[in-house]
């Protein structure tokens, strides 16, 4: 069984083969591969015995399910009003400078994807961002350098 097929199969077995399991299954696949590609969608449709178009419809609706390959760490910088007021643009510039990518892009080493996101629910501690599931708040350009450095070390298992 090819790798992606086995990931889908495992997720479907764990979550149950019913339509109500579709979102958890897609979340599982994304967590493993950092992408849900069309091959995965067809495979999910086969496992759940539903149309691949329905799987595609669901997979492309949600902003935390990526249908393009994303990096090991996906950075979601909040761009909603209070984070904006508290200097989100400075943080974005610093991220772009360090990572040498623009929002929507992934670093060539496959480590970081940079995205802007809508309200993360950390408005009292803006600017804020999520790196995968971990929130980082009250950001400053200096803090950003340390945070990114920390994730780089984690990836290299330093």
């Amino acid at each position: 069984m090819p790798e992606s097929q086995s990931i889908v199969h495992k997720a479907a077995t764990k979550r149950g083969r019913k339509r109500q399991s579709l979102l958890p299954i897609l979340q599982d696949i994304y967590e493993h591969k950092h992408v849900i590609d069309e091959e995965d969608m067809v495979e999910v449709a086969r496992e759940l015995d539903i149309s691949a178009a329905h799987v595609y419809g669901t997979a492309t609706f949600y902003s935390f399910l990526e249908t393009r390959q994303s990096g090991q760490f996906i950075i979601r910088l909040c761009k909603t009003i209070t984070c904006m007021m508290h200097g989100k643009n400075l943080i974005l510039q610093e991220l772009e400078r360090i990572l040498k990518i623009k929002p929507g892009q992934t670093t060539p080493d496959g480590l970081f994807t940079l995205k802007e996101a809508n309200c993360l629910g950390q408005c009292h501690k803006g600017p804020a961002m999520l790196v995968n599931d971990t929130p980082h708040t009250e950001l400053t350009p200096e803090k950003i350098r340390d945070i990114i450095d920390g994730y780089r070390r984690e990836a290299l298992k330093l």
């Binding site: 019913k18 109500q20 979102l23 958890p24 669901t58 609706f61 949600y62 902003s63 935390f64």
Partner: peptide, 25 residues
């Protein structure tokens, strides 16, 4: 616990049900 996947509209109750049923919110 049912995890959402990043969609403001799913806070609307009927969209939330749709989402839990595996559909677009």
């Amino acid at each position: 616990i049912f995890m959402g996947s990043g969609a403001y509209i799913c806070g609307e109750e009927s969209a939330l049900f749709e989402s839990m049923e595996g559909k677009r919110g």
